[in-house]
């Protein structure tokens, strides 16, 4: 049994007897894998006596659930009003340009998946971003650069073994 199957099975076993188990099961899987593999959908559906369409409907309804792997880090930029008043639109443009991706996309090196979020509850010290489970306030474009520098994969420079090629 693969890890993936084991994780799905454990998530189901942990929650199947609880009322309204579907969201907790999806969370449990995504917490561990970073996404919910489409192959787990039939198993979940069977365990909860639902159709696959029902499960898919729930997964696609909520912004947070994803059916494809994310990057090593998920970066969310708050786009709600309180952060708009503090310049999140500029921060968003700067970050997208720097990473070369738009929302719901992952950088080519697989480091960062960029997402928009509506409100992190840090509205008095915006603009706010969430990097994985860490929320960061007063993020200027410069501060974003430092944050991204801190998590970027360092390119590995391979020196030629000897002399000129």
């Amino acid at each position: 049994m693969t890890d993936l199957e084991a994780i799905t099975r454990r998530a189901i076993d942990d929650w199947v007897d609880e009322p309204g188990a579907l969201l907790p099961i999806l969370h449990a899987i995504q917490d561990q894998l970073g996404y919910i593999p489409p192959s787990s959908v039939p198993r979940i559906a069977r365990a909860l006596n639902m159709t696959r369409a029902d499960v898919h409907g729930v997964m696609s309804f909520y912004h947070e659930f994803r059916s494809e792997p994310a990057g090593r880090h998920v970066l969310q930029i708050c786009g709600a009003e309180a952060c708009q008043a503090r310049g999140c639109r500029e921060l968003e443009a700067h970050t997208q340009q720097r990473l070369g991706v738009g929302y719901h996309q992952t950088t080519l090196d697989g480091d960062i998946t960029l997402e928009q979020v509506y409100c992190l509850g840090n509205c008095a010290t915006g603009p706010s971003v969430r990097l994985d489970d860490r929320i960061i306030g007063r993020v200027t474009p410069q501060r974003m650069d430092r944050l991204l520098d801190g998590i970027a994969t360092v390119p590995l420079t391979i020196q030629p073994a000897g002399g000129e090629g």
């Binding site: 969201l23 999806l26 409907g57 909520y62 912004h63 509506y118």
Partner: peptide, 23 residues
Amino acid sequence: RLGAGAYICGEETSMLDSLEGKR
């Protein structure tokens, strides 16, 4: 119980559906 990023679930009847494991 955790939501999953849906503003509408702050509306009370949407919240009930979400708690029940639905959209």
